[in-house]
Structures are given as C-alpha cells and as structure tokens.
Design a protein around this nucleic acid. Sequence first.
DNA 1: GTCTATAAGCCGATAGAC
DNA 2: GTCTATCGGCTTATAGAC
Lengths: 204, 204
Amino acid sequence: MSSIRERNKELILRAASEEFAEKGFAACKTSDIADRAGLPKPNVYYYFKSKENLYREVLESIVEPLLEASAPFNQPGHPGEVLRAYIRTKIRISREHACASKVFANEIMHGAPHLSAERTAQLNAQAAHNIACIQSWIDQGLMARVDPNHLLFSIWAATQTYADFDWQISAVTGKATLDDSDYEAAAETIIRMVIKGCEVQEPA
Amino acid sequence: MSSIRERNKELILRAASEEFAEKGFAACKTSDIADRAGLPKPNVYYYFKSKENLYREVLESIVEPLLEASAPFNQPGHPGEVLRAYIRTKIRISREHACASKVFANEIMHGAPHLSAERTAQLNAQAAHNIACIQSWIDQGLMARVDPNHLLFSIWAATQTYADFDWQISAVTGKATLDDSDYEAAAETIIRMVIKGCEVQEPA
DNA sequence: GTCTATAAGCCGATAGAC
DNA sequence: GTCTATCGGCTTATAGAC
C-alpha cells in the first residue's frame, strides 16, 4: 500500500532520533535530518508538518516502552523478582532505544516542555505506584527501610546512564560500544546493589 | 579595584549558568542571559567575546569541583571511608553547583564537543585512577568482586541525577526543592547500596 | 567602559513546478 | 506525491555614539 509513505516516515523518524539524540532539539537542523534519511528536506515537512512535531513523535515513541518497563510492579510478585525484572528491562531500553532514551532524558532535564500533560501524568502515576509498592514491601518486612523515592531515583539513574552518557562510558572503558557481556555486568552490578544493599528477602 | 568589571562578569556568568542549564546551549539566547543578568546584551559580548566562550567558562567552572571530589581516592584510606566521602561530595556538588552540573551533564551527553582535550584527559585519568583503586580493594579482599567500572557509573549516575533530573524529582516527590534532610536521605540510600551491596569491609 | 541601533547569516518553513 | 528554489524571521555579533 502506501509503502513509500510508511518507509519514508520510518526513515525520517530514525534519522531524527539519531540527530536529536546527538545534538539536541535546538542544535540540530532539519536539513541534517533529511540528509541522514536520504530524502529532500521538504519531505520532512510534508510528513511531519514541523520540526517540533517530528520531535514530539520521537519523544512519544519512548514513553510506551518506559511505561511497560514498570509492568512487573503491576502484578503481584516477590520484591526480588520485581526489582530484578525492572532493572533488566530498564537496561534493555537504554540499549535498544538508545537514541530515543537520550532524547527523553534531555527533555526531562529541561523540564519536559514538549511532553504532553497526559504523558507526564501517566509517568508520574506509574512512578507513584512503584514507590507505594516498594513502601508496602518495607512495611511487610520484605526489605530494609530505605527511602523508596531515592531507591527509585538511583535505579532510574543507574540504568539510564548507559544511554545518556554512552560517550563517557566509551571514554572510560575504552570500548566504542558495549557488548552483551558488558550489559550483563552492568545489570548484575545494579541488581546486586539494590538487592543486597536494601536487604531484599528472597521467597522461602 | 575593577569592581564593576568583576561584578558584571559574575552576574553574567551566573545568569548564563542558569539559562544554559534551563534550556541548553543552542536553545538559549544571549539576550535572555543579558536580561537575566540585568545588563544590556553587548556587555555579554564585551566581557566574553562570544556565546560559545561564555558557555565554555561555565563548563570550566564545574570541572575543578568535579576533579576535587575524587580527592578521597588520592590518599590512602579504607574503602568505606573513601566511598562514603566521595558519594557525599558528589551529592553536594549536585546541590551546590546544580546549574553548572546540569550544563556539564548536557555537554557529556552530546559527546563533550566544547570540553577541551586537556580537561577530558584529566577527567578520564582521574576516573581510571578511581577504578584502579576499587580494583585493588577487591584484590585485597576488602570488598566483593563487583565490576569497578559499573560501580563507578552507578555512583556517578545516582549522585548526578539530583542536579540533572531535578524537574522529575520535584514532580515525583511533590517538593519544589529538596531540603537538607532530603539530600541526607539521598546520600544515605546511595551509600547503603554501595557499602552493603558491594560488601565493603569496615576497618577492624 | 557602556549601550543603542544595525548588519549579516542561518534555518525553519513553504510556494509552486513537476 | 515529490522536490527545487526562495522567503522571512530570528539571533549572533558589532559599529559607533555616548
């Protein structure tokens, strides 16, 4: 069908993710996005109407995966299982949606001026739920009395950092890109600090 | 002495930190910086020559504190003491140099295009030293066999997040700004995860 | 040293040919 | 539906009066 349309939109979206991630919204030019997509600049406007619109679509593309990452919190489970699954999924998002993750981080850093109120509310509601969940585990004696807010902030930060600060991580490790075993080591380090650090009880 | 000059430069630097942190380098206008500083725009160019120059000065202002934060690693000490001091200093920088921290994070996220090679080398050398230090503790049996790279990345991320993602933290906690006890709780949560999570041995 | 008024150029956006 | 050629606004930067 409208295969050309779909293909071009996809090409532009991918190119835009990369450009926005690399330089940020204001610093990147639509002509660079078009060039990277291998299409003339007016096509970008034809399909997306404006630079801001295109940016918003890139931003939206990461919200769904981020909300889904909290799925383990939305069904009953032992704290250890839930936290492990959550951390692994967060790390996977940083790896598989690296560009969009970085765009999202940038957006949040600047006060989320382009994120719809609805999306903001969804994300905040999910965060509140996760925090309440952790608090209930603490109240049940299933883990130590840590502040659930700060625990969650640490998990977010430690997992997001692999997308956001990939340049720094490359500089320090000397590896241009991390491989499976590096991501595995990252996940295990974070999981260890959370599980052991917060004395999360394993099911009997 | 040249009190007017010094005072004006200071006003502009402060205003620039805030503007750059809020909107990013490309998105912010020199006229807004001038307005925020309460000075006419040409003064900005008179004192700093160019927008990029001004940006670089803001960036430089945070490098020294960041390097100094690693001081505990540069003198002999028990791992627990060193890590505790390091985390507390990192958190303090996020709080006291919130704007410059955010500007720095933004710069790193985009591959540090404005950071001098010299500064980059200094920061990388210090990171390498800290990692080697952690590795030696592991080799001495003073802490568990965690990957020192990932441990450091987690500490950086968890402490930086209070500057970088202050908007998100406000949204989740419902507090416009965190107070002493919030930062204390943040530090304790991170310290706990690192010390307990990595089984850091306390001195006998 | 300070500031008003202006130049110069870049980039988002589109008109209009194909 | 696609792209060339161009406009128009906005922002950095400065010339030159005070």
